[in-house]
Amino acid sequence: MVKLAESLRVIDADAHMTERHDLFTERAPKGYEDRVPHVERIDGVDMWVIEGKTFGKAGSGGTIDHDGKKHPFRDSQGGAWGIGDVHPAAWDPAARLRLMDELGIDTQILYPNAIGLGGQNLRNSVQDTSLLRLCVEMYNDAMQEIQAESGNRLLPMPIMPAWDLQGCVREAERCAALGARGINMTAHPQDSGSPDLGDPAWDALWDLCAGLNLPVHFHIGASQTSLSYFGTTYWPSQDDYVKPAIGGASLFQNNSQLLLNSCYSGMFDRNPNLKLVSVESGIGWVPFMLEAMDYELEENAPMWAKKLQKRPSEYFESNWYATFWFENGRGDLQHLIDQVGENNIMFETDFPHPTSLHPDPLSMVAEKISTLRPETQQKVMGGNAAKLYRV
């Protein structure tokens, strides 16, 4: 049996919680029950509906069945599965904690499913900003209740009203007061009518997040712009089971755009203590991108490069984190981690999604993690996350 470092506290930096069908309706003010997100049976399929518009299937949000067996995406999450078909740990916090105990996972950072990985599906479905704000607050309240009831073992990241800059500041501050350990931001707020993330108009939010120790999280596919990769990058002639494999791998490219833009924008010079997290993007692309971003800026915009306080690549070390799960560094994971920076990496499982490490994540990674230096193991498997999330 391959042995990991002693006293290893494992923190899973990316997992997902499928939204219960009554998540919004049980909190809706009187008269809003049919306006907030709720589930209706349409043509034999459970669908999420808000203000009379559907915004996606009320499906399983996962590929793991009740017996713990993982199924292909096309047959499960991307097929006919409903919430009753997926493992209860996909949507039930108590079942999640029991599963975490079985798997040896101390803490999980949680992200949504149906409402969009960055909460973007709500904005795309309705224009009434008062209703949207209510939905954001109800979702975040529900998630903070889960966090409190779990004893801070489940840490859901609150979604933000990306169409409203000042609203984001207010909601981040409100959620921090409830105990949130970060925020979940859409990658392209301009899709919602706001400035892009590099605009100084966002500095009020970045300043708040830095001051309250709230890392800002960008999950791959966390906007309609970025999620389009999933359905557009494969060739039409590809097998139907191959298409989600191509789409899923293509999504990993999303956050390289965020890294480039953020490090070029000057936002870290204005907000040096701001921490950003690239979620479910892996780390293998990072070393090349760090080289490329320095080279490209010096070749194409040398005067702008001189305006920045650091080389673009240096902002990754001071301001970014990334998560990994299945990578082995082509057989030399320690070398890859050293290139990225062992203080900037966190472990994830992606439960209960198609690429998740299941059914036994620690056994699945034990051989490659055991090749790391003990201090590296401690940092990437939980130490960095414990520090970042104050747990």
Rank of each mutant, 00 (worst) to 15 (best):
residue 235 W to R: 12
residue 314 E to R: 05
residue 292 A to N: 13
residue 243 K to Y: 00
residue 243 K to D: 01
residue 250 S to W: 07
residue 242 V to W: 01
residue 247 G to D: 08
residue 297 L to Q: 04
residue 257 Q to E: 09
residue 252 F to Q: 13
residue 252 F to H: 10
residue 270 R to G: 10
residue 259 L to H: 02
residue 295 Y to D: 10
residue 286 V to H: 08
residue 304 W to P: 11
residue 267 M to N: 08
residue 252 F to N: 13
residue 302 P to D: 02
residue 318 S to D: 04
residue 241 Y to D: 10
residue 278 S to W: 10
residue 294 D to M: 08
residue 306 K to A: 02
residue 301 A to G: 05
residue 247 G to P: 10
residue 282 G to W: 10
residue 246 I to N: 00
residue 309 Q to E: 15
residue 273 N to H: 12
residue 260 L to V: 13
residue 261 N to I: 12
residue 256 S to W: 06
residue 231 G to D: 13
residue 253 Q to D: 12
residue 318 S to Q: 04
residue 238 Q to G: 08
residue 234 Y to T: 07
residue 239 D to C: 00
residue 242 V to Y: 01
residue 317 E to S: 14
residue 235 W to Y: 15
residue 265 S to R: 03
residue 310 K to R: 10
residue 279 V to Y: 01
residue 243 K to S: 00
residue 257 Q to T: 14
residue 324 F to Y: 15
residue 235 W to C: 07
residue 321 Y to T: 07
residue 246 I to Q: 00
residue 243 K to A: 01
residue 287 P to I: 06
residue 258 L to E: 11
residue 269 D to T: 03
residue 257 Q to N: 12
residue 251 L to W: 02
residue 287 P to W: 03
residue 239 D to K: 01
residue 240 D to F: 03
residue 256 S to M: 06
residue 255 N to H: 15
residue 252 F to V: 12
residue 293 M to D: 04
residue 266 G to F: 06
residue 293 M to V: 15
residue 241 Y to A: 09
residue 308 L to T: 11
residue 272 P to Y: 06
residue 278 S to I: 07
residue 231 G to L: 10
residue 279 V to G: 12
residue 238 Q to N: 15
residue 319 N to M: 07
residue 293 M to G: 08
residue 255 N to T: 13
residue 266 G to Q: 11
residue 239 D to Y: 02
residue 251 L to T: 11
residue 316 F to I: 05
residue 307 K to D: 01
residue 274 L to H: 13
residue 298 E to V: 05
residue 315 Y to D: 00
residue 262 S to Q: 12
residue 273 N to G: 14
residue 292 A to Y: 11
residue 299 E to L: 12
residue 272 P to G: 06
residue 301 A to D: 09
residue 296 E to Y: 15
residue 268 F to T: 02
residue 271 N to A: 14
residue 265 S to N: 03
residue 239 D to A: 05
residue 280 E to V: 15
residue 270 R to P: 07
residue 297 L to D: 01
residue 262 S to K: 13
residue 297 L to C: 03
residue 237 S to F: 08
residue 250 S to M: 06
residue 291 E to V: 14
residue 300 N to T: 08
residue 244 P to K: 05
residue 325 W to E: 13
residue 262 S to G: 14
residue 313 S to K: 10
residue 274 L to Y: 08
residue 266 G to I: 07
residue 296 E to K: 10
residue 274 L to W: 07
residue 304 W to F: 11
residue 305 A to N: 03
residue 320 W to S: 00
residue 280 E to D: 15
residue 255 N to Y: 12
